[in-house]
Amino acid sequence: MEKNEISPSIEILIIGGSAGSFEVLLQIVPSLKLDIKFAVLIVLHRKNNSNISIADLFSKKTAIPVFECEDKDNLLPGNIYFAPPDYHLLIEKDRTVCLDYSEKENYSRPAIDITFKSASDIYKEKTAAILLSGANRDGADGLKYISQNYGTTIVQDPKEAEISTMPKEALKIFEPDYVLRSKDIIALINSF
């Protein structure tokens, strides 16, 4: 499945996940090398629970600075960002965050498709994106769009995904650059 092309330098890595992907993130985030040269943006379907800060939770697992995005935040290389619950997240040309409280898409807000497309329009071939476990089809179309714009696309191996619907939906409509298990996803990210 792997392509032998040299991937262009990555400016942003977006990780989209839904049911069953939290555990995977708990493996990936602590294993990222500390001097990543790109921004990592994580779009996760989750409950809007204002008592728990996801940034605080993941800050305890890595020395990389972790933030939950607010309106107009700058996406800087070397940081990890989470999309806030219950907002769609788009990206402006100046690499700032644009939040949007419009209709749900794919029954989801944030919708992974929306962020995937927006990032692809801005970062073009310097976009890398991973689609993890999940129970619906959000992210599949967006990942294909990134692929068509020459970005790097990765799908979690459905055999490993706790809920394989989301990875399988992506594999139904296009062939991503990589289909990998979590440990290989980590190795790949650290090679970017």
Binding site: L90, I91, E92, K93, C98, D100, S102, I114, S118
Partner: peptide, 9 residues
């Protein structure tokens, strides 16, 4: 207006 959002709308 924020370009990314209004362009999408």
């Amino acid at each position: 207006y924020s370009k990314a959002s209004i362009k999408r709308r």
